[in-house]
Amino acid sequence: MALEFSPETLKKFEETVARYPKKEAAMLPVLYLAQQEFGCLSPEAIEYVATLMEQAPARVQGVVSFYTMFNTKPIGRHHIQVCRTLSCALGGAERIMALIKRKLGIDLGQTTTDGRFTLSEVECLASCGTAPMMQINDAYYENLNEEKTEKILDSLK
């Protein structure tokens, strides 16, 4: 049951750590590796990273809980993150959010039953000129309107 990096990931881990002046500085990239490998940063994953990084598990947990992009629980395949800060709000972000909630039948923080989408509200994504917009996993979808939003969601399996 103990979690472990695959040999390939372990190699990536070692290469990553080698680039930094001190091992502990590689904490964020290593956590990303773990999140990718294990799906989320569960207590087991955190404990494993702590061992690899030679840090106390409590410290790693403190770090994980601080940043919004680390998930401690599994999420859907497509993480929809709709920006809610001022420029996007002025541009109609609320309508887009309402549409997504309606279409997918989920509320903030929830995942569709088929595991396809998780919905979150996030703060400014540095895309204010193309508001309203959302981020899904690593991609930005900008200049949204209702129609565009629907199309995007339909296209994501």
Partner: peptide
């Protein structure tokens, strides 16, 4: 012994 940490924001 590092048992305690601050979590969340």
């Amino acid at each position: 012994t590092n048992e305690l940490t601050v979590v969340n924001r």
